[in-house]
Simulated scan of single mutants.
Amino acid sequence: MSDEINDEDLAEGLERKKISGKKIVLFIVLPALLLLGGGSLALMLLGGEDGNDAAAGEEQAALAAAKANEPTELLFLDLDPMLVNLNTAGGKPSYLKLTISLEVDKQSSLEDLQQKLPRIIDNFQVYLRELRVEDLNGSAGMFRLKEELLIRVNEAVYPTRVHDVLFKEILING
Rank of each mutant, 00 (worst) to 15 (best):
D53L: 15
G91A: 14
A42V: 02
L77K: 02
G37F: 12
A65W: 01
L36Y: 05
D50A: 15
L33D: 07
S94F: 00
L102F: 00
T88P: 15
E70A: 12
F27T: 09
G37N: 08
A55T: 01
G91Y: 07
D80G: 07
Q60W: 14
A55F: 13
M82T: 03
M44H: 10
L79A: 02
L75Y: 10
L74Y: 11
A68H: 01
K67F: 06
A89L: 05
K97D: 11
D78Q: 10
A42M: 05
P93L: 06
L86H: 01
K92V: 11
L36D: 07
L41A: 14
N87I: 00
A68R: 05
L77Q: 06
A64V: 07
E73M: 08
L83W: 06
V29T: 13
L83F: 09
E73Q: 10
N87W: 01
L96S: 00
Q60K: 15
P71L: 10
Q60D: 13
I28R: 09
T99P: 01
D53Y: 13
G47S: 02
Y95N: 08
A62I: 14
G37Y: 11
A68F: 06
L96E: 01
P31I: 03
G37L: 07
G47E: 03
A65R: 09
A54Q: 13
P81W: 01
N52R: 15
L75S: 06
A64G: 00
L26N: 12
I24N: 06
N69C: 04
